[in-house]
Design a protein around this nucleic acid. Structure first.
Lengths: 219, 219
DNA sequence: GACAGATTCTAACACATGTTCTATTTTGTG
DNA sequence: CACAAAATAGAACATGTGTTAGAATCTGTC
């Protein structure tokens, strides 16, 4: 029997890493296979050989970065079981921003998602669902309980939950987009402590917003 | 002397309108001249004749939609001089969302800006500044006064002002992106009353967030 | 009607991109 | 070493894009 090398650790990995960087920065459409292969030190046909086509490479990058990101920055950031709702929300926002700001590895996943929200590639029907839906539902649960806690007299309004959830995600994703938009070509990225500080302020802002929405309709 | 027609009201206008629709939906790069011309019922060389090139057409569309949008939905939405800060913020968010959601004319401007935040075209160096900077500074002033009002004991923290401003803009822009992202190909757009209702809830959320940020650091 | 200028159309060009084909090199194994 | 499979490199192909050239048509004015 032939000892077929099931997982090439050379070109395949270099391609994924180069592609992650380029896809995160340019988006799926604007990224070119030639630039990716140039950075990976491979020929253009390598992507066809290892991933079939550009879509396959993109899907592999997304899955790779997703697996890596949730392992390093899980939604609850390793909170205790008895953590408060406020702590859970803060942990979630921290993980979301840590996965999308900064440079290199950790930031791919968030930047890819940010690119997808602005210009969906359409090749992530299945992968994106399994990656994004659980995240959404996790946040949704926290928000619903926060609204319930802020206004126990009635059941949380469903549209209010959705609004708060979208507002929180919108604030985070805008942070990922904003730096490129504000000033062109700004290589300086935030350090992890800066990202955590930013996350905590967004959490504070959002908690105030959630409480204001929770009491909506009451004089 | 020949009665030169200084401003063609036919093809030129049809091109701008078709281009506005396509640019708003696809973004600058993904939009193709051929699709624009097909919708406008013109040949591909028409854009060269009337606007020199794709960049010129884009700039003309942006200027056109900007002029139209601020005329129909000014930042203060025609508020009285003695309007409260809260009313001003609500009016601003209403105008921003009315300029970016919905379909047809009014929504171009906001959708173009949303596309620019996610993937700057680079051809709007001057035009974009004159269009976006005043909007930012107007919102910034409102936010600063709201923070001062919520915590008169000290001068508003500048980074807190910037954070709140970005959070508000981020919520609005995410609304423009989210609909395409959530469900693929959803033609149903919000009606103006629905947009106003959404704006008011985002305003309520943001006022709660601003107050929470204003008292930051105080036990 | 004639004519000059404005406008439009068709066709082509130059270029970039994703993909594929084929030859070549490398790698593991007997 | 020999050989088959895996992996790579480079060129070529098909397609879509922005742009341009030149012919054809329309428009207003004398």
């Amino acid at each position: 029997m032939k000892a077929q090398r099931l997982w090439d650790e050379g070109t395949r990995k270099r391609l994924i890493e180069a592609a992650g960087e380029v896809f995160a920065r340019r988006g799926f459409r604007a990224a070119t296979i030639r630039e990716i292969c140039r950075r990976a030190g491979a020929s253009v046909s390598a992507v066809n050989y290892h991933f079939r086509d550009k879509d396959g490479l993109y899907a592999a990058v997304f899955e790779y970065s997703h697996r890596w990101a949730v392992e390093k920055y899980p939604h609850d950031m390793g909170l205790e079981e008895n953590a408060t709702l406020e702590e859970r929300l803060r942990a979630f926002i921290r993980s979301f921003l840590l996965r999308g700001l900064g440079d290199g590895f950790p930031a791919w996943h968030g930047k890819l998602i940010a690119q997808e929200t602005a210009d969906p590639s359409g090749v992530l029907s299945k992968v994106a669902q399994t990656a994004i839906r659980p995240m959404d539902e996790y946040l949704e649960g926290i928000v619903r309980e926060l609204i319930r806690k802020a206004n126990p007299s009635r059941e949380p309004n469903e549209s209010a939950v959705q609004l708060c959830r979208m507002n929180i995600v919108g604030q985070c994703i805008f942070q990922m987009h904003a730096r490129r938009f504000m000033k062109i070509a700004d290589p300086e990225e935030l350090s992890p402590p800066q990202i955590v500080a930013l996350a905590d302020r967004i959490c504070r802002f959002s908690l105030g917003g959630i409480r204001a929405i929770a009491v909506e309709g009451q004089s």
